[in-house]
Design a protein around this nucleic acid. Structure first.
Lengths: 138, 138
DNA sequence: ATAACGCTTCAAGCTAACTTGAAGTCAAGG
DNA sequence: CCTTGACTTCAAGTTAGCTTGAAGCGTTAT
C-alpha cells in the first residue's frame, strides 16, 4: 500500500498542493498522517479525494461537500445523505442533457464557419447561417 | 417581431437584469436599442444571448467569449473562430464523458446509502461498501 | 401634480475557490 | 557542518463573475 507526497497527489489529480492544504483546512480531507512534519497521503485519502472531485464536478459547492461529509461521517441522518445524493443525481442529469444540446449547437456553428472558410478560400460568396438551421444566431 | 424588457429577458434566461447589463458592459451584447432610455431586446439579441449561454455552459470564460465574438464580428480570421470552436468542441466532449463517469459513481453511492437506510430500518447490520464495488471510498 | 414603478448609470462591494508570500522546519547530499 | 529543496503554517492577496447601492429619469395611475 503506497503513500504519496502532497505534490505527487496534486499532480495525479491535476491540482495544486495549496488546494490540497485548502481542502484540509475546510475539513474535507482530515487525519492526513505526517512523516517528519510532511503530509503523507494514503490510498484511503486518495479515494476520498476522488469522491470530492466527483461531487465537485457534478456541481456541488465545497460547502455542500462539508455538509455531505458531516452527515456520512456522523452516521446519523442517512436520509439526508440520500437526499443530497438525489439532488446531485438530478443536477448531473440536467447538466448532461444541457451539455448534449449545447454540443449539437456547437457542431452546427463549426460546420457553418468551416463552410465560410471554404467559400472564402474559393472566392465564393459566404453561405448564410439560415441555410444551416432556421435563423439561429451566431 | 416582439421585443422584451430587460427583466423579461432576465426571467426567460434565468439570470438577473444586472447580469444582462454586465454582459453589455463587457461588449458581449451591444447595440441594444433603447425606448425612453430603457433597453429593448430584439429576437436577434435573444439569439445572441442564447449563444453566449451555450458557450458559457460549455466552459468558455467571458474573456474567451469576447475573443470569440471579436473574431466573428470582424469577419477576419475565420480560421481562429473555427479553432476556438474546435477547442469548445473537445472541451464539451470531455465534460460529457467525465459527467457520465461521475453519474455512475453517484448511482453506486445512492444505492449504497439506500441499502444502509433499509438495513437500519430493519435493525440489520449495515452493508459494506466493498460489497457494492471494489473498495471505492465514500 | 404627485407618487409609484421600473428602469437608468456608475462605482463599489461581494463570494467562492483558490493562490501567494513570508518565515521557518526537516532530511539528504557534498 | 552547511546547503539545497521540498515541505510546513498562517495570513493576506487574487480572480471571475456577478450584485448592490445611490442618485436620478420617464411613463403611467391616483
Amino acid at each position: 500500500m503506497a503513500v504519496y507526497t502532497i505534490s505527487q497527489v496534486a499532480e495525479k489529480y491535476h491540482m495544486r498542493p495549496s488546494t490540497l492544504r485548502y481542502y484540509e483546512d475546510l475539513g474535507l480531507l482530515y487525519n492526513v498522517p505526517r512523516q517528519g512534519g510532511h503530509r503523507v497521503y494514503t490510498d484511503a485519502l486518495l479515494n476520498r479525494l476522488g469522491a470530492i472531485c466527483c461531487y465537485k464536478n457534478a456541481g456541488m459547492s465545497l460547502e455542500e461537500l462539508q455538509e455531505f461529509f458531516h452527515y456520512t461521517e456522523s452516521q446519523e441522518d442517512v436520509a439526508k445523505t440520500v437526499a443530497l445524493l438525489d439532488e446531485v443525481d438530478t443536477r448531473i442529469q440536467h447538466q448532461i442533457a444541457e451539455l448534449q444540446a449545447n454540443y449539437l449547437q456547437i457542431q452546427r456553428k463549426k460546420h457553418y464557419f468551416a463552410a465560410i472558410q471554404t467559400a472564402l478560400a474559393q472566392g465564393q460568396p459566404k453561405p448564410d447561417w439560415a441555410d444551416f438551421c432556421n435563423q439561429q444566431y451566431v
